[in-house]
Amino acid sequence: MVRMSAEDRRESVVRAAMSEFAHGGYSGTSTEAIAKRVGVSQPYLFRLFPGKRAIFLSAVERCMAEMCQVFEEASRGLEGEEALHAMAAAYTRIIDEQPERLMMQMQTYVAVAAAEAAGDHEFGETVRAAWMRLWETVHLSLGADVDETTVFMAYGMLINTLVSMGFPAGHRVWEGFYTSAQRPAPQ
């Protein structure tokens, strides 16, 4: 049996944490559940990370970094509307194929709101910095056009909300997202 390095084990913890936090949120996820998913003890988990907060923030960083990578790859070599449509298509694939990424994003926003309400502004600063890297990635991919960036991010947040609430494809709430040529057939 091959032993994993501490760095490989950290990677396993971050991946497991993304899944656990996506489903249970920050408050509803125990470090015990993360440790169990990875197959390590809680004491070992805390040798890798100083606490639950550090695990969550590492998961947030990873989630946002992966989204940046998706948008960078989708828009590489493209400009304007081509870049916009390529990033939108890539994001749609992520939502369809890896819904936990979307749920991790949504749980992140909830966790920041709760921390801010409790007076913990440092937590939000860390998450906002990660989100700003995502915003910058989109912004640069769209030719540094602030209006296009705002519209893209606004549509993305609306999509996140509608998907999180479980609106199925073909529901009328999705009609405004398509031109008549792109509108899917009713289901």
Rank of each mutant, 00 (worst) to 15 (best):
M1K: 05
V2F: 13
S5D: 02
A6F: 01
E7Y: 01
D8K: 14
S12G: 14
R15W: 05
R15H: 10
A16I: 06
G25L: 12
Y26F: 15
G28A: 05
T29I: 02
S30V: 01
I34S: 05
I34M: 05
I34F: 09
I34R: 03
K36N: 02
R37D: 14
R37G: 04
R37Y: 06
R47S: 13
L48Y: 05
L48M: 08
L57G: 07
L57Q: 07
A59T: 10
R62C: 04
R62F: 01
C63H: 11
M64G: 00
A65G: 09
V70L: 09
E73A: 10
E81S: 13
A83V: 01
A83K: 00
A89L: 10
Y91H: 06
I95R: 11
E97M: 02
Q98W: 03
Q98P: 01
P99R: 01
R101P: 00
R101Q: 10
R101E: 03
L102G: 02
M103D: 08
M104Q: 09
M104S: 03
Q107W: 00
V110T: 12
A111M: 12
A114G: 00
E116G: 01
E122P: 01
E125A: 15
V127G: 07
L134G: 07
V138R: 03
S141R: 14
G143C: 11
V146F: 01
F152K: 06
F152V: 07
G156Y: 10
I159D: 09
T161V: 05
L162E: 05
F167V: 00
F167S: 00
G170Q: 08
W174H: 03
E175M: 00
E175R: 11
F177A: 03
T179A: 04
Q182Y: 04
Q182E: 15
P184T: 06
A185I: 13
A185R: 14
P186G: 00
P186Q: 04
